[in-house]
Design a protein around this nucleic acid. Structure first.
Lengths: 216, 216
DNA sequence: AGTTTCGGTGAACAGCCGTTCACCGAAGAA
DNA sequence: TTCTTCGGTGAACGGCTGTTCACCGAAACT
């Protein structure tokens, strides 16, 4: 595994990344709870004990993957959320704008961050208790961030904060679910088909949601 | 584990149920892929090898749980889908009706079938490849059933089958996601709070969705 | 009554798990 | 050049995994 010619710290960082990447990939089958240190080590061509030069335990690996995955989710939402705040726009225009931006961001980030998004969705439901709790907590923070951002959109000015939270939850869930579907596409054509369906569903949902009268 | 006084076939069925229940419970932490035969056996008080009097392998256990879980999901949807088809109803009335029925069915079935619903959601994302594929397939069938039912609702008569499929997917996903949230409620009060939020989100979504013009 | 059926038992199998330890050899500092 | 640092190594630990086998004892059948 040693590659002479590069500095020691650089080599270390390289191995660390290899561990994280391999773990993220191997966790796709069976989840983090069914991940084995020896699998990871074999995958990247180091001996199992070398793992401990980079992480104190497997649990630490898991929590690192959680942190990294949420960085990816936040980056995705940051892209999706540059929404034109045109006061004259109709609900329909805005809904389409948000939906298209979201799906575009999702498709664009696919390949880089989709494994992280699926990691979040998966471990939220199937992770070891500690990981599940961490994911749940981080997800709440992300939704709260998104909700405060949505509050600045003209059309939702009059909404209650509870309704904004509901909308944010809706959008985040949609992203996570679609990331799973998109990951299964074999061809570029299938990717486009799935993306189109996702876009349409988001249109349907958002058109209605943005016409929502929060005062009930 | 033997309880004299009951017939042999009855005792066998009892043990089989105990295995399935214990497996369903233990799979909640870490998923099916992290489930161990010995854990299950210890949980119900039999020796590990006795397991093989009821299932040929662990894989067979997993597939049985898939079948059982989808029975639960279909039962839930059957309850949720007794929708008043009043031609004079507004979109809003219908949306509220569908949403309320769905959430009511979910809350009512909770405790009996919510572990099965969470099993479906979890193994869809984190199951062993074979289980994941089986769940995915069954989920497609359920969505198709629901879509053909929705086609009989007056308001969606003009919808394209693609849009009906999207709506069905939306409803099924919503059920699975909410089952997860509801399962974490400690008190009856919290259950009501979560149910109210879920209802409101479904209102928001369906009000818009049912106003959707499928002709684009 | 004798005989068969069969769910549960306990030992044994090869194989994987996370983690520890002493050790090696090359990179980096003096 | 000498000395230190440190990422990777290989053996070893106790414990867990799914599955097999021969066996037991009571229920069920004749």
């Amino acid at each position: 595994m040693t590659t002479p010619g590069v500095s020691r710290s650089e080599q270390k960082e390289r191995t660390r990344r290899a561990i994280l990447d391999a773990a993220l990939g191997l966790a796709e089958e069976g989840g983090l709870a069914a991940l084995s240190l020896r699998q990871v080590a074999k995958e990247i061509g180091i001996v199992p004990t070398a793992f401990y030069r980079h992480f104190a335990s497997i649990d630490e690996l898991g929590l690192t993957l959680v942190t990294e995955s949420f960085d990816a989710l936040r980056a995705l939402l940051r892209d999706a959320r540059t929404i034109p705040d045109d006061a004259t726009a109709t609900e329909w225009d805005l809904a389409v704008s948000i939906a298209d931006k979201s799906i575009d961001a999702l498709v664009t980030h696919a390949g880089q961050s989709d494994r992280h998004l699926r990691f979040i969705a998966r471990e939220l439901l199937a992770g070891p208790p500690a990981v599940r709790e961490a994911v749940r907590h981080q997800l709440q923070l992300v939704e709260r961030e998104l909700a405060t951002d949505l509050a600045h959109v003209e059309l939702t000015r009059a909404w209650s904060s509870a309704d904004l939270a509901i909308l944010a939850n809706l959008l985040v869930n949609a992203m996570l679910i679609r990331a799973e579907e998109l990951s299964r596409s074999g061809s570029a054509a299938e990717t486009r088909r799935i993306a189109d369906t996702a876009r349409r569903q988001l249109h349907m949902v958002l058109v209605g949601t943005l016409r929502w009268d929060s005062s009930k």
